[in-house]
Amino acid sequence: MTISEIELQNVSMRYSADQSSTLALQDVSLKITKGEFISLLGPSGCGKTTLLRIIADLLQPSEGSVKVAGSSAKEARLSQKYGIVFQNPVLYDWRKVRDNITLPLELMKVSKQDRIHKAEELLELVGLTEFADKYPWQLSGGMQQRVAIARALAMEPEILLMDEPFSALDEFSRERLNEELLAIWSKIRSTVVFVTHSIPESVFLSDRVFVLSPHPGRLSAVVDIDLPRPRNKELRNDPAFFQLIATIRDSFEGV
Rank of each mutant, 00 (worst) to 15 (best):
S111P: 01
S111A: 12
K112G: 12
Q113E: 11
Q113V: 09
I116W: 02
I116Y: 10
A119I: 02
E121M: 13
L123D: 00
V126M: 05
T129R: 09
F131A: 10
F131H: 06
A132W: 08
A132F: 07
A132R: 07
D133C: 14
K134N: 14
K134D: 13
P136M: 02
L139E: 06
M143P: 03
M143T: 03
V147T: 07
V147R: 02
I149K: 01
A150S: 11
A150D: 02
A154T: 03
A154F: 07
P157Q: 11
P157W: 08
I159T: 04
L160M: 14
L160P: 00
L161R: 05
D170V: 11
S173G: 06
S173W: 05
N178C: 13
N178H: 09
E180K: 13
W185Y: 03
S186G: 14
I188D: 07
S190R: 02
T191K: 04
V193T: 10
T196G: 02
H197E: 07
S198M: 03
I199M: 07
I199E: 01
P200N: 07
S202H: 03
V203E: 03
V203F: 05
L205V: 03
S206D: 07
V211E: 01
G217C: 15
V222M: 12
V222N: 02
V223M: 02
V223L: 00
P228C: 09
R229T: 04
R231V: 11
N232A: 15
E234M: 07
E234W: 05
L235R: 05
L235Q: 08
N237F: 08
P239S: 04
F241I: 09
F241N: 00
F241P: 06
Q243E: 15
Q243L: 06
L244V: 07
I245L: 12
A246N: 09
A246H: 13
T247L: 13
D250S: 10
S251N: 05
F252T: 14
G254Q: 08
